[in-house]
C-alpha cells in the first residue's frame, strides 16, 4: 500500500530526527550561509560580552576621572577621554549594559502583548476586532519618541517606565501583523475540525493556531528589537535615560555633541558609533531571519 518507505516526501534525512528539529536545522543551515547574519551576530556578540563583563574588559573604570581631560585617541585611551577625564572606551563598553537590558525587554514585552491582542482580534473578529483595530490605528499615529518623553517626564525615568512605554507602543504594530496572519489561518479546515470536536476558543487560538503563525512572530521580534535599541537610545539622548554619571550611550552623545565644533569629535563619535553598530547588527540579523522565514 502507500506505506512504502519512499512515501516520506523529505528525502535524505534521518528518519529518527523529529520534523521540528529537521525544519529548524534546515533554517539554521540556510541562515548560517548569509554573510549579513554572521556579521550582525559577531557585532551583537561583542556588545553582549561587553554588557556581561564591562569591568573585566574595560581598561579603566567608566566613572574614573583621574586621567587627563579631553585627550584625543591614543594607545592608552583608544577612544580618547572626555571633559572630566573619563576614558571614553571604557564608558562605551560599560554603556552596552543599559541598552541591552532595556531594549530586548521592551521588544519581548511588546511582542508578547501584540501576539495576544492580535490573536484575539484575528480570531474573535466582530465588534471586538472593529473597536480594537481603531484603537490600534490611533496608536500607530502617535509619534513614539514624543509619547516616550511624555511618559518618562510624568512617571520618572526608571528603566521600567522606558520598557513599559516602548512595549506599549510596539504592541499595536505587532498586533496588526499577527492579526493578518491569524485571519488567514482561522479559515483553514483544521480550525473547523477543532470546533467540531468541541475545543475551547483559548485552545484553538494558542495551541492550534499559534504554532502556525510563529514565523511572522519571530520576524516581528527581531525587527522590533532593532527598533527598540534605536528608540531607547533616542530617549536617553533626549534626556529620558539614566541620570548623568551613568555611561549610557544616548546620554553620552547628548552630553558631548556640542563639543564636536570644538574639535573633541571622539567624545560623540564613539558612543554614537556604538548605537549605530548595535542597531545595524540587529537589523542585519532581522533581515536574514525574515528572508529565511519567508523562504521556508
Amino acid at each position: 500500500m502507500t506505506d512504502h518507505p519512499s512515501s516520506i516526501v523529505v528525502p535524505g534525512q534521518m528518519p529518527d530526527v523529529s520534523e521540528r528539529k529537521q525544519a529548524r536545522r534546515e533554517n539554521w543551515r540556510l541562515i548560517r550561509r548569509r554573510p549579513a547574519f554572521l556579521i550582525g551576530m559577531a557585532i551583537l556578540l561583542v556588545w553582549v560580552v561587553c554588557a556581561l563583563f564591562p569591568l573585566t574588559i574595560a581598561p579603566h573604570h567608566p566613572l574614573d576621572f583621574r586621567t587627563g581631560l579631553n585627550q584625543s585617541p591614543s594607545w592608552d585611551h583608544p577612544f580618547g577621554t572626555d571633559q572630566t577625564g573619563r576614558d571614553v572606551f571604557s564608558r562605551v563598553i560599560a554603556g552596552a549594559r543599559d541598552i541591552l537590558r532595556i531594549a530586548p525587554a521592551a521588544a519581548v514585552l511588546g511582542v508578547l502583548f501584540g501576539v495576544i491582542l492580535g490573536m484575539l482580534m484575528g480570531y474573535i473578529r466582530g465588534w471586538f476586532d472593529i473597536i480594537a483595530s481603531r484603537i490600534v490605528e490611533s496608536f500607530l499615529a502617535l509619534p513614539v519618541v514624543l509619547v516616550g518623553l511624555l511618559a518618562v517626564t510624568t512617571m520618572g525615568n526608571s528603566a521600567w517606565v522606558v520598557i513599559g512605554v516602548v512595549a506599549a507602543l510596539f504592541t499595536p504594530i505587532v498586533a496588526r501583523t499577527v492579526r493578518a496572519a491569524v485571519l488567514a489561518e482561522r479559515e483553514l479546515d483544521y480550525v473547523t475540525s477543532a470546533k467540531l470536536r468541541g475545543e475551547s476558543t483559548m485552545f484553538i487560538m494558542f495551541r492550534e493556531i499559534l504554532p502556525n503563525v510563529m514565523g511572522p512572530i519571530v520576524v516581528e521580534l527581531t525587527v522590533r528589537l532593532g527598533y527598540a535599541v534605536f528608540t531607547v537610545a533616542t530617549l536617553s539622548f533626549l534626556g529620558a535615560g539614566p541620570p548623568p554619571p551613568s555611561p549610557d550611550w544616548g546620554s553620552q552623545v547628548s552630553d558631548n555633541y556640542s563639543s564636536i565644533v570644538s574639535g573633541f569629535w571622539w567624545r560623540t563619535f564613539f558612543p554614537a558609533g556604538a548605537i549605530a553598530s548595535l542597531v545595524i547588527s540587529v537589523n542585519m540579523i532581522a533581515d536574514s531571519v525574515q528572508s529565511v522565514m519567508e523562504a521556508s
Binding site: E19, L188, D189, Y190, T192, P211
Partner: peptide, 8 residues
C-alpha cells in the same frame, strides 16, 4: 488545510 501542519 484540514490537518494542523505543526502537529504530528
Amino acid at each position: 488545510s484540514a490537518l494542523n501542519r505543526s502537529w504530528s
